[in-house]
Design a protein around this nucleic acid. Structure first.
Length: 432
RNA sequence: GUGGGCGUAGCUCAGCUGGUAGAGCUCCUGGUUGUGGUCCAGGCGGUCGUGGGUUCGAGUCCCAUCGCUCACCCCA
């Protein structure tokens, strides 16, 4: 018998109505902001060789461990729906020899990503990210520019209660050494730690810094801090970035405990959060990834970039979506004997006339629609009103009339005159 | 994977201690209104998430299951 009705899979959603309009606005703000700064659009495939993510994101991360949508195609290749955007962009940089272009190469995207997770507010299995990547230079100005763009994007769409946190991870070696040091410190104070933190010493020692637990907090006061263990050049780089952000008037907080979820980050890392979001407070984040391109088989190429969740920006921004744009005109069909169906010759003839008019009016640049749902004349007028049309054309067997709703004028015209009148009246309105 | 809350019309919801399903909005039709969003009347629309159980009788009680949602974990 009847199956259960099909629904969008868990963690996915349809975009429509006001939500679609808000997204379109966000996209146009992002495009203007990023293209003005020299970023050009890139779209990479929805899926990539699984290896791309396994190698770059980090074997031990949750993403690779349990969140990837991985499948085999007809030839047995292992493919994965992209869980993030930086590795694919770097792959494209290498694949298209972009190191031969003038550096830095700046690219931006707005695409969907996939992670198999339990969904909740601001977290979905298919989600959208807007992101920007700048490759080919380790100039701290590029870091500062990247961060500033994320900051300005979120502010421009009306992001509320946003905070920017900033830190530096140094080199991967410094980071690894630090991690061991921290684990040692935690093990030395194990009896003070909360059970949860204790069970995560190996997996995620950095998390101990976020704990609210009394004993853990006191144990962490004496803990080593990564920022104190990075190289002199990295400190200098970080100082430059901070100075440039100060100069640009971008407010930030240095947070030495800031961690990012992906393995490839080096030096600068940052995260933008909003209190308006619920549990998933991260709106966007990113950092520098100086070893990534080389890891993918390219020349040693530094890079810096970020990604921000579209759904999260929208939650933080509370964008009042513009309503559907109104129509200039609506074409109604008036049949003498309404009882006769659409197969009736007269009705078909009427429809042909109206349809021709519709197409000619659209070619002339007028936003116009016509009745295509079999409504009564009253229903058609109501529909015209709903669509915001200020001009109503009524096509009947005897005549074609144009009524200007705003001034109440009504005139009987032939089709050529009608077109002129439509253009005249709708353009006059447009320029007012 | 774990825990809390919730599943009745397209949407928002009502339905008391079990008695055989309702309202508002939307949509359509007719009337009315200066041929337009008003007002009036009518209509379309639901195997009450699904499957069992208790009962003469279940939207209501019990069990299971699925879905949605929020949170943990983690992250955008």
């Amino acid at each position: 018998m009847s199956e259960a009705r099909l629904k969008a899979p868990r963690g996915t959603f349809d975009v429509l109505g006001a939500d679609a309009a808000a997204r379109a606005r966000l996209e146009s703000v992002a495009r203007r902001l990023l293209e003005q700064a020299g970023y050009s659009r890139i779209e990479t495939p929805c899926f990539e060789a699984s290896e791309l993510f396994e190698r770059t994101v980090g074997e031990a991360t949750d993403i690779v461990q349990k969140e990837m949508y991985t499948f085999r195609d007809g030839s047995g290749r292992s493919l994965t729906l992209r869980p993030e955007g930086t590795a694919p962009v770097c792959r494209a940089y290498v694949e298209h020899g972009m190191h031969k272009r003038p550096q830095p190469v700046k690219l931006w995207y707005l695409s969907s990503f996939f992670r198999y997770e339990r969904s909740q507010k601001g977290r979905y299995r298919q989600f959208f990210q807007v992101g920007a990547e700048a490759l080919g230079s380790d100039d701290p100005a590029l870091d500062a520019e990247s961060i500033t763009l994320l900051w300005r994007l979120v502010r421009q769409v009306g992001g509320r209660d946003v905070r920017l946190r900033l830190s530096s991870l140094g080199s991967p070696t410094a980071r690894r050494a630090y991690r061991e040091q921290l684990k040692e410190h935690l093990r030395a104070h194990e009896e003070q730690l909360s059970e949860e933190v204790r069970s995560r010493i190996e997996l995620n020692p950095l998390r101990a810094f976020d704990s609210e637990h009394e004993g853990t907090r006191s144990a962490m006061r004496g803990a080593p801090v990564l920022l104190d263990h990075i190289s002199e050049q990295d400190v200098e780089h970080f100082e430059e970035v901070k100075g440039l952000l100060d100069a640009a008037g971008v407010p930030y907080e240095v947070d030495p405990t800031l961690v990012r979820g992906l393995d490839y980050y080096t030096r600068t890392v940052f995260e933008l959060t909003s209190e308006a979001l619920g549990a998933q407070s991260g709106v966007g984040g990113g950092g520098r990834y100086d070893g990534l391109v080389q890891q993918l088989g390219g020349q040693a190429t530094p890079g810096v970039g970020w990604a921000a969740g579209v759904e999260r920006i929208l939650l933080a921004a509370d964008m009042s979506a513009p309503s559907e744009p109104p129509l200039d005109a609506y074409i109604c069909l008036q049949l003498d004997r309404a009882a006769e169906g659409v197969r009736d010759g007269a009705a078909a003839e009427l429809r042909r006339r109206a349809f021709t008019l519709l197409q000619r009016a659209r070619s002339a640049g007028i936003a116009v629609d016509m009745e295509m749902a079999g409504r009564s004349l009253k229903g058609q007028r109501a529909q015209a009103a709903r669509r915001g049309a200020s001009l109503i054309v009524t096509v009947s067997e005897q005549a074609t009339t144009l009524r200007d709703v705003e001034c109440g004028e009504e005139q009987c015209l032939d089709d050529g005159e009608l077109l002129h009148e439509l253009v005249r009246r709708s353009s006059r309105r447009g320029t007012e």
